[in-house]
Design a binder for these strands. Sequence first.
DNA 1: GTGGTCTAGACCACA
DNA 2: GTGGTCTAGACCACC
Lengths: 126, 126, 126, 126
Amino acid sequence: MTEEYKAAKPIYMQIADKIIVSIVRRELTPGEKLPSVREMAVKSGVNPNTIQRTYSELERMEVVETKRGQGTFVTEQEELFQELKNKVQREIMDSFIDSMRQLGISEEKILDDLSSYIKGEGGKNS
Amino acid sequence: MTEEYKAAKPIYMQIADKIIVSIVRRELTPGEKLPSVREMAVKSGVNPNTIQRTYSELERMEVVETKRGQGTFVTEQEELFQELKNKVQREIMDSFIDSMRQLGISEEKILDDLSSYIKGEGGKNS
Amino acid sequence: MTEEYKAAKPIYMQIADKIIVSIVRRELTPGEKLPSVREMAVKSGVNPNTIQRTYSELERMEVVETKRGQGTFVTEQEELFQELKNKVQREIMDSFIDSMRQLGISEEKILDDLSSYIKGEGGKNS
Amino acid sequence: MTEEYKAAKPIYMQIADKIIVSIVRRELTPGEKLPSVREMAVKSGVNPNTIQRTYSELERMEVVETKRGQGTFVTEQEELFQELKNKVQREIMDSFIDSMRQLGISEEKILDDLSSYIKGEGGKNS
DNA sequence: GTGGTCTAGACCACA
DNA sequence: GTGGTCTAGACCACC
């Protein structure tokens, strides 16, 4: 067996994920400036180098653009938004399907169970 | 607020989760004996104390029973199985719905998207 | 005008370039282990973090692979070598052509001049 | 051996190089007056001392002459122009040949490869 | 031993 | 101010 009991995602990635979700949720809009590295570091209770790494990673993914001396900005391309949303959504669905399968639930049943569950729970949020 | 990142469930809980999934999948059946603490520790490449804690946690959840001098056994109650399965499944579905909602996806759309996705991806595993 | 007088390439990139050239020159062969981060750091008179970054960058380029607890290795794919060589060579030629053009030398003349030059200098190395 | 990286020519040399290229390209002709130190400093977004140093260096190379109270002028000698052009060109070609050799490319192949490359790329600029 | 992450604090170039 | 790089030293998970 010798499984590796997964370490936590690195902090810089957790923060990157958060920012991506914010973009997908339109809380951060294309062209908008992100907090400065130092600002974000304080806000996140983390070392500025960690945020630097987060921003570098996001830039590598072309999710943000950085202008020296000015700041870091959400990429202006509208396509990015849809692309990003699809990617995140697919990841979530994959992980969900995988978890359900591990419980021995077939794909048709996944949909059925989820449907019933949502309808049953529907009252609490609508 | 200095320590809000790096969640990463403790290893003893990760192992407990695995055992629960095994039970739900009927790979471990009611009344069946779990490997001894030492055995499990070796198999998992983990310190025996960690497994001890896992078993304590499972016992607290009434998922297993420990018989002195005999070992640790999956609880005999059949009801437990269904209850456990439902609980785990509900947790997974809750977490899924929550994630999708965070992306701004409505409940009806969750079902639609998932349905399309499963049908699109269906070919690869069926 | 307000030109920006180019800063030196970052050290971690200079080292990455060196390693790439070594691979292209077959001084480092596919599958070969690179010096450990700490070793390389001492050898280069540089902080281990800087080498770490070099190796990360090389991994991102798929030039090396890293095995936790074992080390960092040149990627095994033979195609990589040719691809890398072509890329480096193209960069050199581009930069050369650009420099010559800046001197107002036409493309045909570049070839002529270089040809004469190599033949004239040929004696010194043959 | 603590400082072998981060070459990056000093700015005053980068500017000197530019001026030399301008002369070789006949954008600055023999006898022509260079901008004053102050003027050039503003234009380059650099401290006047830096330009002063650039001009000193160019004078040392006999590329310009300084006339007290009048300014700095490109040397009048026509021979200088050809000499300078040849020198710069030779430096570029030497550096190019050296880089290609480091990649293990023979001299004949250098010409072949460059020729093919120019012909392949030729369309985009001609 | 290996690589990977994080902190603390510094200096730089760009605006 | 901004982001980008670097150092020093630490702790972790993996082998």
